[in-house]
Design a protein around this nucleic acid. Structure first.
Lengths: 347, 347
DNA sequence: CTGAAAGCGCTTACAG
DNA sequence: CTGAAAGCGCTTACAG
């Protein structure tokens, strides 16, 4: 392992000035084909790798994006962050994550550090609806700022979210598509995610001129327990329900348990759709639940790509909603969804 | 927004040479208290933030760690990566992620880029047992290398893993602790994770002089379906079993469904313990399953901290196992585990 | 204690 | 087409 080879070494080997070598290597400026080739050969010969730090300093960039978050290990933040990391890595851009928790002093200090590092862009991650302290962040930066898995009340901001309305619409259309006409909705109350999914469901029902079963959604919280309780209510009402769109997978699993225990066949009597697809990520291909995958990874990726392309003015401000995906499972498709290698359907 | 303020500006404002300013600001070298204070005041006044890129170049560091992985979005990789990001961010170190998938050419190119960037350390993430192509990576680097959620067959390597043996031991001790003496084990076959958990369970049983129920583990795969099938087998054998340690949560959930459907009370008749705690992360406090949390976030953090401290020689080579945590749930504690705010226990 | 100088490794006008 | 020079913004021996 000799010393690190530098541009001067290449220039010397090719018997040119290092400015000429610099030009040749990046294909700019007038350089005769002959000397260019000589320089390129010398670089290859010496296995020259230009010092990125030096280039950054000379170019005034850092190839680093700052990520500010209030709670990185949150389950919803991790896929977004992974999407950010992956997309930026493909562009040779590093990620500097500051987890500010709720401490405003830490946040201020983080912003200073990001400034010092001359970051090329700033991502604010998973803060829910944006509060003022975070909001003011963008003020001090003359670089692109985006919000991922967070929204803002300022229309000049740019943010990226999963498409909750689409999730609800897809769930509704799928249930209608398999012939269900008495579709109930169990969800959480007073939550923007819940509202969007409900809106989407209602769009689908309206388009098919099918009313919502029970007249209105059952609103509780996001837990499996609430799903069980709401399903129990539905059973007790002896309402005519042949499908339930559950606001998330936990609710769906809770409802599933109660329905099965009551001897209700799923999906034959009642079909079930959830949202989140955590089971799908973990479940080694179980495919129990039909669910809507919110593609959080893509939310992170889109936000990251925006940041790197923002200077080119290719993006509109405001909200960007990432498409979600329908994941089929037994709760709407029955055991037909099972894989050929494991056809017994033992669960 | 005027121009960016530089060290020269500070020096000029304090009427000293910039070399003096540099020394004063970082507290090194002989500088009289008076002029030092003058310089510090000037810096504060001008809101000086030293250009990190320039410092890196001068110091020959990058404050960037490279992360090489074969599949970043994998469910087990995300928490590890998040742990890495968070720990490094606290040290003002950026992360550059290259997701090489299985392409060896991409991998080689990634290594070149990491070299060019003069990364301060390299983390290989979640590759399972290390194969030769990845293994050779460390050869070209004269910086610390660590493996996170991956193992190596070279004892000179350093790697960080969740403690699978401890997971099995904790599960066993917990079941013994609540009075169970007929503990069965459902797990996956031919998997290093499965083997470690089994080893730990057997340690706990041996210490208590309690034999494994059924004589040996039921080995299948990691799916909920296998959990259901194995539980069915146990029921059919009419074996005397009052607890099952399941190799992961999916198996536990599959077994849970079958037991409940067969009228077996959980945990009164049969207690259940899983491993992974995904439900806990997602479940909004449902606490259905008693499970072992592998603390993957900590695995990532430890690997990251090793990388930054490696030069100080504070770490041993070889394996480092991160402690896991017992998460109590209804499947061993009954409804007593329920939160006070939601005591009905409807599921 | 303080300043003048060289250096980190590259880029980029500017002359020839 | 090519080279000599200044610059990116800091650090660090080396003199005084």
């Amino acid at each position: 392992m000799g010393k690190t080879v530098t541009l001067s070494d290449v220039a010397a080997a090719a018997r040119v000035d290092l400015s000429t070598a610099s030009r040749a290597l990046r294909g700019e400026g007038r350089v005769s084909p002959a000397t260019r080739q000589r320089i390129i050969d010398a670089a290859a010969e010496l296995d020259f790798r230009p010092n990125a730090q030096a280039q950054f300093l000379a170019n005034g960039v850092s190839k680093t994006v700052g990520v500010l978050t209030l709670n990185a290990p949150a389950i919803f933040a991790m896929p977004v962050l992974t999407g950010v990391n992956t997309a930026l890595g493909q562009l040779d851009i590093a990620t500097l994550l500051y987890d500010a928790r709720t401490d405003s002093a830490v946040l201020q200090e983080s912003v200073r550090k990001l400034h010092a590092r001359r970051i090329d862009g700033l991502l604010v991650l998973g803060a829910g609806v944006l509060r003022s302290p975070l909001h003011s962040i963008s003020a001090g930066f003359d670089i692109p700022v985006a919000y991922a898995y967070a929204t803002s009340d300022d229309p000049k901001d740019v943010w990226f979210m999963p498409d909750g309305v689409m999730a609800g619409r897809m769930a509704g259309e799928h249930l209608l598509g398999i012939g269900r006409r008495h579709i109930a909705h169990i969800t959480s109350k007073s939550d923007i995610g819940a509202r969007d999914r409900e809106t989407g469901l209602m769009q689908a029902l309206k388009a098919a001129k099918v009313p919502l079963a029970l007249g209105k959604p059952l609103r509780g919280n996001w837990t499996r327990r609430w799903g069980a309780e709401a399903a129990t209510q539905i059973l007790e009402q002896k309402a005519s329900v042949d499908a339930i769109f559950c606001g998330n997978d936990q609710i769906a699993l809770g409802a599933y348990g109660v329905l099965r225990a009551a001897g209700v066949r799923v999906p034959d009597d009642v079909a079930l759709v959830g949202v989140d697809n955590w089971e799908g990520l973990v479940g080694n291909g179980d495919n129990l639940l039909t669910t809507i995958e919110p593609n959080l990874f893509n939310v992170g990726r889109s936000a990251a790509l925006y940041l790197t392309a923002a200077t080119e003015g290719r993006y509109e401000p405001g909200a960007h909603y990432e498409a979600c995906t329908l994941v089929l499972g037994e709760t709407t498709m029955g055991s037909g969804i099972r894989t050929a290698t494991d056809p017994e359907g033992l669960i």
